[in-house]
Design a protein around this nucleic acid. Structure first.
Length: 594
DNA sequence: GTAGGGTTAG
């Protein structure tokens, strides 16, 4: 019977009790260790307390047991009261401090004590390994370099352990060159772990090719960790398809995956937004009984969330049976973005702490669902509780005003905004201008627009659009020219508005000039709407040949809708008459429908 | 005869 297994330990223990036999100290020490390994702290403690004689092994085992359960205070008390301490005692305590959050300073102090050779204790390579991990965690490369120097000076054994940690430390501290130098200079001790550390380091630095090269050195050594490092490295660098392919390669190489492998594969699926592959992996996970792993569970949740399958995402969340505000927030964001406000609201109300992200999502969801009354209600609820200073929330409320053409509430929001000192927020200002213009008060829109000292593209777009939609095409064109004079770069939206204005005024030559300037001066590729605008412009001016010529220039021919449209246009070329009141998009849609 | 501390992929 193997005493290192829990079963073996229990059998030994019970037999000894039955026989009234006192276990030797070394056996009890082992039992303490085995119980602790299986999270049976209570049993370990009982054995330790009732031992007739203890040695340094007993103390070390008990200290480790407390560290394992994250009880560092208890561990330190034992450490201080132990009659004897050796290097293992120190290293155990140091290890506990280094991996726990908030005990980093204690770790450094303890290490300093060791350097002063307190109790004749001299840091060894285990100490150094642990300290390097701490540096990596704290991103403290300065201290890491000191440790590196210390290693060289004290000629502490260079082992696979120390080299791996050194590579890892440099890499996580963004010193890729140093990591690579260490790797290259430690040929004698390079093993699979060192290699994996270096592969991970390459990926952190975006050196995908180098990672692959190193991975294939001594390929027969590769195991699940090195393979998973490779897969997750590809995924992290955005190569999702390659990550999935490598997963297949790994299986073909006869290496069995574990839950970390699945976590990376799931990340690839959600990155690709591939519901099909996600479902396949989900099935695989279920078959392997890995669904209860929290990384895998959230990975599957993410697949469905990214694929906008909120019902499945919700199901996964509910089945995990773990209260998780992170998932709830995503459910709210997902449902809101789809305008499914009943579900979004259900989760929103269940959320204990609502932050600005969730509030914003709910507001914009209601806007998307065109439930402007809910927007106003929500805003009045929220502003009773607190001062709303999040620009995006106010943007949502203003958009609700636009939906409803509600000028008065819009003005109230504008006033509120000025009161809150949010008059400088660019996005908010643009929305205010848009709100005034769309609610029919162009004068106010103009006033606000002129009050802004530093105008950006979006602000200009909104004002130009305001002029254009109120029949002031010439003003729109003048403002566009002013925009160019002020050195503000127009974008696709600007050109769409301005071409539309030209179309409405029948300004063929000016429209041509602007259309050409898009690509020549601003490097903006015209989209289908821009072409449609030009075609309408020519059509309205009865320049049918030019219109046809333009249609043929549309470069997006792989689109079946466009090519179908083109073909039907060619058939109807002669019989086509152009109506007088085409808007910039009506042209397209009416022809598509025909 | 019997024992304890450290490395890589989320």
């Amino acid at each position: 019977m193997n005493m290192r297994s829990l079963r073996g330990a229990l059998v030994w223990h019970v037999q000894a009790i039955k026989a009234g036999f006192t276990l030797p100290t070394s056996t009890t020490n082992l039992l303490i260790h085995v119980y602790s390994k299986h999270n049976l702290l209570h049993e370990s403690q009982k054995l330790f307390d009732e031992m007739p004689e203890r040695n340094v092994f007993s103390w070390n085992a008990m200290i480790s047991a407390h560290i394992k359960t994250q009880n560092l205070k208890q561990a330190r008390e034992l450490f201080d009261s132990a009659p004897h301490r050796d290097l293992v005692t120190y290293n155990s305590m140091l290890s506990g401090y280094a991996s726990a959050d908030g005990y980093e300073a204690d770790a450094l102090n303890l290490f300093r004590e060791m350097q002063n050779e307190c109790e004749g204790m001299k840091a060894d390579e285990v100490t150094v390994t642990r300290m390097l991990n701490l540096c990596a965690k704290l991103l403290n490369v300065g201290y890491g370099r000191q440790l590196h120097a210390f290693m060289v000076k004290t000629s502490a054994d260079v082992t696979g352990f120390t080299v791996s940690s050194l590579i890892d430390m440099y890499s996580k501290c963004a010193c890729f060159e140093d990591a690579y130098r260490v790797f290259n200079r430690s040929y004698e001790v390079v093993d699979l772990v060192t290699k994996s550390s270096m592969v991970a380091a390459c990926f952190r630095a975006g050196e995908t090719e180098m990672a692959l090269k190193i991975f294939w050195r001594v390929p027969e050594l590769n195991n699940v960790v090195s393979w998973t490092t490779l897969i997750s490295g590809y995924v992290q660098n955005g190569y999702m398809e390659e990550g999935l392919k490598l997963f297949v390669c790994m299986a073909e190489a006869g290496v069995r995956w574990n839950e970390r492998t699945f976590a990376s594969v799931l990340k690839a699926c959600s990155g690709l937004r591939s519901l099909k592959r996600g479902k396949e992996v989900h099935a695989c996970v279920l078959k392997n009984g890995l669904i209860s792993n929290k990384f895998i569970n959230s990975g599957i949740f993410n697949v469905y969330y990214k694929c906008e399958n909120m019902k499945y995402a919700e199901l996964i969340y509910l089945m995990s049976r773990v209260e998780n505000s992170f998932s709830i927030i995503k459910l709210i964001l997902g449902y809101s973005s789809q305008g499914n406000m009943v579900e979004a609201r259900r989760f929103f109300d269940s959320l204990a702490e609502k932050d600005v992200v969730v509030w914003t999502a709910l507001f914009s969801g209601y806007v998307k669902a065109r439930q402007y009354e809910a927007v106003f209600e929500l805003f009045s609820d929220l502003s009773k509780e607190t001062m709303v200073s999040e620009p995006l929330i106010l943007v949502s409320v203003l958009r609700a005003c636009v939906l409803q053409a509600a000028l008065n509430p819009g003005m109230e929001i504008h006033a509120y905004m000025l009161k809150m000192g949010l008059g400088m927020d660019k996005k908010l200002i643009s929305t205010v201008v848009d709100m005034y213009s769309q609610c029919g008060n162009l004068t106010y829109a103009e006033t606000v627009f002129r009050s802004v000292a530093e105008r950006d593209t979006i602000l200009y777009n909104v004002m130009i659009s305001g002029y254009a939609h109120h029949g002031h095409e010439i003003k729109a064109i003048q403002l566009f020219e002013e925009m160019l004079r002020n050195g503000i770069k127009p974008d696709m939206v600007t050109f769409l508005e301005i071409l539309s204005a030209c179309h409405h005024c029948g300004l063929v030559e000016l429209g041509e000039k602007y259309f050409n300037s898009m690509t020549v001066d601003y490097n903006i590729l015209p989209e289908i709407d821009h072409y449609a605008c030009m075609i309408d412009l020519y059509g309205r001016a009865n320049q049918l040949e030019k219109a046809m010529g333009f249609m043929k220039r549309i470069p997006i021919e792989q689109d079946p809708v466009i090519s179908g449209w083109l073909m039907s246009m060619q058939q109807r070329e002669t019989e086509l008459t152009w109506g007088g009141s085409h808007s910039k998009t009506e042209g397209i849609y009416s022809m598509n429908c025909a």
